[in-house]
Design a protein around this nucleic acid. Structure first.
Length: 476
DNA sequence: ATGTCC
């Protein structure tokens, strides 16, 4: 994008003053290099979101923003129901509550390397992965509704995971207000056999080494120790979330006119929060959030069983589990006044600062762990929420590196086999059912995750705590 | 992201 289209607020923040039907400004957090690299579509989409009814303060984009469906991926926007605010299915995305969780291990890099290939084989054999992957858990009608209401708490009752896990999951593992009745039979049917599965695309399970610590005190509070390994899982609500997104997008697009909403882009289909459709979507979306939380809890359980085979009994305590595709009711201080807002984060991570009451005690004073998934070769980062993030984008940060090339362009540039071999030469073992998927997810198809997190830190969205280097990657 | 088009 041409930086001259923006007013420079700082080295890492760029503003577009309202023009046309924009109700608020658009603000993109990016370094000059990242901004130049972004697609013009990010400008169009971020400014389009600023036209939606009831939007508060500004339409934001994170440093990893790229072209998405309606909203940019890496978009953050908050709406006030008292001011005609809307909820948008495209503002959450198709993979509702897609997110990342990281488990701690007491294993050293050497211990993992001594069984690297075998451990990769076992994880790949036992964690269902790929398009249409099905698991051992099959839900009947009653179990489906209990799962959609109970989230990770339900998974725990079924014998998956440890009770302590709930403390480390957003919302304590279960979001209130889920309405299984608002979820179609078709969405439920698609999910019936998909619990405890990874899925495809950018989803993965990785064993990573804590390679570098930037903030020793916070790392210690999070349980991260240099040279030790962690297990990170990135997946979402599978077929259920996708089906809910598809159905509500269609319904919202059809109904927009009846609500008197004129859409700058049909993909921005939305409904007033205070409408039957808006409430029904929120109930279904929260059910999908619980589905994703339960899904990750079960995948974590399977991984723990695999680790127990190799290394004996170990707890693999959960460090944190955080979603990056959600719309959540939160209280934010706007102009000195607390307001209840519906915050859409699409490819953006909640990043609560120190002292937030909803953070678990062990690390409340350090701020929320913000888990940033990099690409296969580039590694990942753990960040921490900072106080000033509240004034930047409702306490939000980036969620990953962000794509540089489209999936199609990536498959033209690389073969999956070539990528697997190159990563093996670097000491990273990859297992995947889809070599095309690996090519689409090639490290070169993503921006430099280091530059993205440096920018997030410089912009005051979050601060760097640790860098994680992959040793094993199970890829969807 | 996705039973990669009901």
């Amino acid at each position: 994008m041409d930086r001259r289209r923006f007013e420079k607020l700082s080295d890492n923040a760029w503003r577009v003053a309202p023009f046309g039907a924009m109700r608020v400004p658009a603000v993109i957090y990016a370094s000059e290099d990242l901004l130049e690299e972004m697609d013009d579509k990010v400008f169009d989409q971020t400014t389009n979101v600023a036209m939606l009814p009831g939007i508060v303060e500004a339409s934001y984009a994170m440093p990893d923003a790229h072209w998405g469906y309606g909203f940019p991926i890496g978009g953050v926007a908050a709406f006030d129901p008292q001011a005609g605010g809307v909820v948008s299915a495209g503002g959450v995305g198709f993979d509702i509550s897609c997110g990342v969780r990281t488990h701690l291990t007491s294993l050293t890099r050497e211990e993992v390397l001594s069984v690297q290939e075998e451990l990769a084989d076992a994880l790949y054999a036992l964690v269902p992965v790929g398009v249409g992957a099905e698991g051992e858990v099959v839900l009947d009608r009653a179990a489906m509704d209990a799962m959609l209401t109970g989230g990770a708490r339900w998974a725990l009752e079924q014998g998956f995971g440890n009770a302590k896990d709930l403390l480390g999951i957003e919302e304590g593992g279960c979001i209130e207000g889920a309405e299984p009745a608002a979820v179609s039979e078709r969405a439920k049917e698609r999910q019936r056999r998909e619990m405890g599965t990874l899925g495809s695309g950018n989803h993965y399970l990785e064993v990573q080494e804590v390679k570098h610590i930037f903030d020793p005190a916070t790392a210690a509070a999070y349980g991260l120790e240099r040279g030790k390994c962690v297990l990170t899982i990135h997946c979402g609500s599978r077929g259920l979330g996708h089906q809910i997104g598809t159905e509500f997008l269609r319904e919202m697009a059809v109904s927009a006119q009846s609500f008197g909403i004129s859409l700058p882009d049909r993909e921005l289909a939305c409904a007033p929060i205070n409408s039957e459709l808006g409430q029904r979507y929120l109930g279904a979306m929260r059910a999908a959030i619980n589905c994703a939380l339960a899904n990750r809890e079960i995948v974590g359980h399977i991984a723990r069983e695999v680790f127990a085979r190799f290394f004996g009994k170990s707890e693999l305590p959960l460090m944190f589990d955080v979603s990056h595709n959600t719309c959540k009711l939160e209280t934010h201080r706007i102009g000195g006044k607390d307001r209840a807002l519906f915050v859409h984060r699409k490819g953006a991570t909640r990043a609560l600062g120190p002292g937030s009451a909803s953070l678990p005690e062990p690390f409340r004073q350090y701020g929320q762990p913000v888990l940033i998934g990099g690409s296969m070769g580039a590694g990942s980062y753990v960040l921490a929420g900072v106080e000033q993030s509240e004034d930047r984008a409702f306490s939000s940060a980036c969620h990953g590196a962000g794509r540089r090339l489209s999936r199609h362009a990536a498959t033209r540039a690389w073969s999956g086999r070539q990528i697997v071999d190159e990563l093996r030469a670097k000491g990273i073992v990859v297992r995947s059912p889809s070599m095309r998927g690996v090519a689409e997810e090639a490290p070169g198809a993503y921006k430099d995750v280091g530059a993205v997190v440096d920018c997030a830190e410089a912009a005051g969205l979050a601060r760097k705590v640790a860098y994680l280097a992959p040793l094993i990657c199970i890829k969807g």
